[in-house]
Design a protein around this nucleic acid. Structure first.
Lengths: 267, 267
DNA sequence: AAACCTTGTTCCATTATTTGAAACTTGGTT
DNA sequence: AACCAAGTTTCAAATAATGGAACAAGGTTT
């Protein structure tokens, strides 16, 4: 994995944090060491420091490290301030009510899709997606529509970072197939996921573009091949387009209420 | 917000990150500087580094910094691995269905309550909109029941860190009132929020205790004085107790699968 | 029960990074 | 044009990070 470590000690420590998170399960020091470029004492001290800081949590019974609770606190602030979620929320709610299917709101994070909000259908399909979860850009509806509307240089840079794992028989398996698909998407203004990531799961996706045409994020309505088909999903295109436009408009005007004293939380 | 800065450069950088998060809104460099102990170039470089690392996000139009999206990604890993949420999830779902009121799942983070999951009757699954939010321990149901079952030294340490802001006429306004309440809670095994935090909002709260009696977290069922009263909430005590026990049991047995290599075939 | 691992922890002289007073730039205001 | 506030860069001094080596604690084999 090519890390952009840089940024001195802080960058290195955060690389270690990412490394722990990437395991997806609590991990032992020796496991980290085995795949790390850092010498043992160096890695050891990073892990110690991060644990002290509650960026990692240490389980003494199992002798394992996992990402720590301080991140959950910090992420809440990030979610509210640095994502489309708070602006989009009412519109996503309305969309969800209107279509009665699972709705996703996503942004591009590096070369991946980051899901920042989700509304389940009334009778939800069990799918492996949640806010905070990342997914591949090249084989999801939201990923492709965001790629399609980046500028050429950015698109190519992101394409170069895709790993093109074949999930299903419909997965676009290489950069050229993806480029062709992106052209189609640009022509239509929106895109589909044709069971490219999970069998039986299809979606229609719409980019959220600023006035200047910059990609802010994407919306999708997901369903299954049991319940509907691409033509059925296409019926949602107008409401999706409308919702994306509203979110873009509100994002434009989004301004933070200045200098008011805020009370403690009310959940 | 007494931080343990320590931990060298990394600790200092994370203190800056907390400082930005604490503002609760995008913040200018000069605002950070005004309330910082760091000299200007030092703070400047920390902010630069964190922004490079996407732990902060810079808005060039408004010249402001906010917690960055990388945190949302990391937090998802933390939420799944270092909190009760994944273990508790099915039980919280069931509880929510059974009671038809808002359900909270919380843990203690430093001296504060950290909400890690929530179910609304209307809106089944959302995540960071509420998970990640922190609240005061001394005037919430979940906070008090967790305090009540810590060991004496820990309880006193946490009490010493409470700020005792008076939110309503029912707020427990000092350490002694709180200590008295904690004794009551220990006697009953569960507790209430009697409009102590927000007028009209009441709840019944149950600690989640390990076999050894260690505090793992807390559950609550919240309602309003319009809809019910404390006696009405008390009817939920059995199902709450049952749910807490199930979560504690599952947490005990919670073990992460595989210490095997999954590289059998090329991913 | 001694020798021998594997995993985790500490030491400390060397090396590299961080630090911050001062100076400079930029963009806006008087 | 002069001024001011906010942000950025410089560079020698101060400080913190580094990592080879050695040590400690469990567990396993001979």
């Amino acid at each position: 994995m090519g890390h952009v470590t840089g940024d001195g000690t802080v960058g290195k420590a955060l690389a270690v944090l990412d490394q722990v998170a990437a395991f997806g399960r609590p991990v032992r020091f020796s496991e980290l060491l085995a795949q790390s470029d850092f010498p043992k004492p160096t890695l050891y001290r990073f892990v110690q420091t991060l644990t002290n800081q509650q960026m990692l949590a240490y389980d003494p019974d199992r002798q394992t490290y996992a990402p720590g609770v301080r991140l959950v606190r910090l992420a809440h602030a990030a979610w509210e301030q640095s994502t489309l979620a708070p602006v989009a929320r009412p519109h996503v709610d309305a969309l969800s009510k209107a279509v009665g299917e699972t709705v996703h709101l996503a942004q591009l994070d590096n070369a991946q899709v980051l899901y920042i909000d989700k509304r389940n259908a009334a009778n939800p399909v069990q799918m492996y997606s949640q806010a905070g979860k990342v997914g591949p850009a090249y084989c999801t509806g939201v990923g492709k529509v965001m790629l399609a509307f980046l500028d050429d240089a950015a698109t190519e840079k992101v394409i170069a970072q895709q790993s093109f794992h074949v999930f299903t028989e419909y997965t676009l398996a290489d950069a050229d197939a993806l480029r062709h698909e992106l052209e189609e998407i640009r022509a239509h203004g929106y895109g589909f996921d044709r069971e490219e990531h999970e069998p039986g799961i299809i979606c229609i996706a719409m980019p959220i573009l600023s006035e200047g045409g910059r990609v802010l994020g994407a919306l999708s309505v997901t369903s299954t091949t049991n319940r509907t088909n691409l033509a059925g999903l296409e019926a949602y295109e107008p409401v999706l387009r409308e919702t994306a436009a509203k979110i873009a408009r509100d994002a434009q005007n989004w301004s933070f209420p200045d200098y008011e004293t805020k009370e403690a939380t009310g959940i």
